[in-house]
Design a protein around this nucleic acid. Structure first.
Lengths: 129, 129, 129, 129
DNA sequence: GTGGTCTAGACCACG
DNA sequence: GTGGTCTAGACCACC
């Protein structure tokens, strides 16, 4: 899995890392049960500080996407059921994206076609849990 | 149009303002050609610093969503064609949202239904321009 | 409000800080709506790094005990209703404390008297919210 | 007696073990004079390192809850009188729990009822010693 | 002014 | 070996 960081972006590095790992899991590039690199390893690879990676992992853990085991490092969790908070956040973000798309002249059909094609790249794992 | 700001949010106030105005335009609560309040007026109403509102307006202008005229104040622009940069940003954000939804166990059908229902609240104006 | 840190303790400093602030709020030494010192101020007073204090504040924020406002710094929140997770944690900790007290020969009456006298030092604020 | 360990918890395994054994004694599931499994046995059963179990037993011995005899293995001790150190620790922890409960809107009556019901599950042995 | 982020390097606890 | 904590000092974004 390839990480690309933009250190000059206003998006904090630990958020960029978090987003790319989440996307990686979603796309099936990282599988349930699989291990993530150690904090030090990823820090070295990405050329960032260990604390930055650590923060990323803590967030992913809090969100329930990974587990951190003192012995095995970080591993990817099976899917959790969505909760109300996530649903609210998702709706708010989709509303903003819809508005922006609409302001750029995008038609509903085109927007939905895009949503469809992007979601189709996802690779659900254990969704029946 | 009602603004609701959360000063304790990690999202900067000027971004919250920008997002709500964009959503307002998208939903048709603010119509093309209509005037936005003056910087001072909005600052007073929202209880924030004028510099903050000013920053919001500058961003909206840069994004091509409003025009600022010394005499008429800020007015909402007709729709511009989408450009490649917007398309990229939209795809990246949809990809992240899709991944998150997927990790929360949401199925494609449910996701697309949600996208549809949210986009349907938008009120395109001059989309033929 | 006086803070006493034990840097040689196995309890991390940021947890010690968190616990003392929570206790301070509980006892009414810190009142709802009141401001906490700035991150830098508290760091200087306590002789620790700003990031350590920052971590403490982030935890308190996540727990819903304080709000962090870019403009006003950190302020104490009104009481939130207890949730199931807190209840579980409370029961588990009370069970452990009960067992330890029991092993030390403490009778139920003495234990309950102690619980009563300690809780009586608390100073509930806005508990009707 | 059933042990349930969470290897991804931030609470060290040897502390989890210690806490569950203490609770087991308090509840009377483990009786005074009874033998604990050998270090190796428990390590195998719990799927942890023998060093981890060893550390747990050393702590329990230091706390006066068990005796370790080269011939008989580890056995549960009769109750020792509480000392000042324990009293201080107990008060500090109860104060923190009270504050947290108070901040979550719990009333004194409810708190004391909970303390009562939990302590009532304990099964004091030899408390007259 | 504030909080938020990041680094480099250190030390410790855990298993 | 691992992750967790902490420091000193820096820079940036926000208001």
């Amino acid at each position: 899995m390839i990480l690309s960081l933009d250190t000059s972006s206003s998006v904090p590095i630990y958020v960029q890392l978090r987003n790319q790992i989440v996307t990686g899991i979603g796309k099936g590039q990282l599988k349930v049960g699989e291990s993530l690199p150690t904090v030090r390893q990823l820090a070295r690879d990405a050329g960032v500080n260990t604390m930055t990676v650590n923060k990323t992992y803590q967030i992913l853990k809090m969100e329930g996407f990974i587990e951190i085991d003192r012995r095995k490092g970080a591993t990817i969790c099976p899917i959790k059921k969505q909760d109300g908070i996530f649903r609210e956040k998702l709706e708010a973000e989709l509303e903003l994206l819809s508005a922006e798309a609409c302001l750029k002249g995008m038609k509903k059909e085109e927007f939905l076609r895009l949503c469809d094609s992007i979601f189709s790249c996802m690779n659900p794992q254990y969704t029946e849990v």
